[in-house]
């Protein structure tokens, strides 16, 4: 059954698929698109999009990512909302997108770009989902989505607890969710950190995986494919049975 929500039908959503998802994880883009359509959104994918510019900016080359910014604004102007399945890329746009030729349009994008679980929770205000995923799943809380976009409460802060992705996973039939011992420690991906600080990066990833493995999970999920790509790389090298899966794929699943 499809939960069409008629009041959202006129909502024009621009689908932002980060470059590495486009190139390596098309199934995440497909799941995101299908999920949003199921929920009644009018979604289109601007064909000339590339990258948000984050890899350059986080490496100190923000000044070189002006071309990326312009291309982004060109692709995503005119939408009511821009939605992407990556907390990190969305945060980058929110914080840093600039276009001197079209400052108003850049501002509109900054204010109306959402990470997927944030969009489902805060804009569509989803209370139920027709999804089923009968597996033991561990949630990896990616930092930029959590501490930057406030997708969930943070262990360091003395503020009320909540979690947007967890609330959504709670609507999935058969899913058994577990938390790693350190609920929100970084996995060590960190953009180009993953290669320039290879030893620390991998050690951090291994430690995250060990905590999920101790919970006996079959899958590690999250809302940031970049972190999952890093964890997956380590899991595969370890010949682990644990698989990495993006939250969009779970929320869109119908087993």
């Amino acid at each position: 059954m499809i939960h069409s929500l008629p009041n959202y039908i006129d909502m024009k959503v621009g689908l932002f698929i980060p470059c590495y998802i486009d190139q390596f994880y098309p199934q995440v883009g497909i799941a995101t698109l299908q999920l949003l359509e199921k929920l009644g959104c009018e979604v289109s994918f601007p064909l000339n999009q590339t990258c948000c510019g984050q890899p350059m900016a986080n490496s100190g080359f923000a000044s070189s990512s002006k071309g990326c910014d312009k291309n982004f604004v060109g692709n995503f102007r005119g939408f009511d909302y821009i939605v992407g399945p990556s907390g990190s890329c969305v945060l980058h746009i929110k914080d840093h997108l600039k276009d001197d030729d079209r400052p108003g349009e850049a501002e509109h994008i900054r204010k109306n770009i959402y990470e997927l679980t944030e969009f489902l929770t805060d804009v569509l205000k989803i209370e139920k989902l027709d999804a089923s995923f009968p597996h033991k799943v561990g949630l990896h809380t990616s930092c930029h989505g959590q501490r930057g976009l406030h997708l969930s409460s943070m262990s360091e802060r003395n503020l009320p607890e909540f979690s947007k992705p967890e609330k959504l996973l709670g609507m999935v039939k058969g899913l058994e969710l577990s938390h790693p011992a350190r609920t929100d420690e970084c996995c060590g991906f960190g953009g180009t950190f993953c290669v320039f600080e290879e030893a620390v990066s991998v050690k951090m990833g291994k430690d995250r995986i060990a905590e999920h493995a101790a919970n006996g999970v079959e899958y590690i999920t999250g809302y940031d494919e970049s972190c999952l790509m890093h964890l997956e790389g380590i899991l595969k090298r370890m010949n682990s049975n644990i698989k990495a899966i993006h939250i969009a794929e779970i929320l869109n699943s119908n087993a």
């Binding site: 698929i17 590495y20 998802i21 486009d22 190139q23 390596f24 994880y25 098309p26 199934q27 995440v28 883009g29 497909i30 698109l33 994918f45 064909l47 993953c194 290669v195 320039f196 290879e198 991998v202 990833g205 790509m229 890093h230 997956e232 790389g233 380590i234 595969k236 090298r237």
Partner: peptide, 21 residues
């Protein structure tokens, strides 16, 4: 390559999301 030292590469899919779209 520092990525590959302790991590596998993502398996290249047969088409990009854009191509699928």
């Amino acid at each position: 390559n520092p990525w590959y030292k302790q991590r596998e590469m993502p398996a290249p899919p047969k088409e990009s999301f854009r191509e699928w779209y």
